[in-house]
């Protein structure tokens, strides 16, 4: 079988599907000061899984507000800098109108993922932390 570290180099999703790979990538991002990119990406996935009807609507609203406040609202943050203004407005409207559908963060997640794939992921594959592990 292919060693895990080699699989991680195949695609971002093969890295993020693996627990050890995710932890190593997060350590790298933390050193680079942008672990929030990965936390946000997983928060979006977690939010989508919290389907309407399961658990309280209040909990989903509270979570949407928490994700928005922590990652999107403050323009200087690593996530906010990579999310387009129109996407931010869309999320803000969802939160303010308290109409939070499971796909509320999908576009923002796509934009952050593109930034990770373009910058952080290639840097990770060349980093000491990855090469030492591999």
């Amino acid at each position: 079988p292919t060693p895990p570290a080699l699989r991680w180099a195949g695609s971002l999703h093969s890295l993020l599907d693996d627990r050890d790979g995710t932890q190593l990538f997060r350590s790298f991002l933390r050193e680079e000061g942008c672990a929030d990119l990965l936390d946000f990406w997983f928060a979006c996935s977690g939010f989508r899984k919290l389907a309407p009807g399961e658990g309280s609507e209040e909990k989903r609203l509270k979570l949407a507000r928490a994700i928005y406040k922590k990652y999107v609202l403050h323009g200087a943050g690593v996530v906010a800098r990579r999310v387009k203004p129109a996407t931010k407005s869309f999320i803000r409207d969802c939160v303010l109108r308290q109409l939070v559908d499971p796909a509320a963060f999908d576009q923002a997640q796509t934009e952050v993922q593109a930034a990770i794939e373009e910058h952080s992921y290639p840097l990770f594959l060349k980093s000491d932390i990855y090469l030492e592990y591999a």
């Binding site: 693996d18 627990r19 928060a43 996935s45 899984k49 979570l63 507000r65």
Partner: peptide
Amino acid sequence: IDSEDDLLQECISSAMPKKK
């Protein structure tokens, strides 16, 4: 009642891959 931060952490953890 969970604080917003606890809720966020729980959400992130729920989406992370589990140990194989």
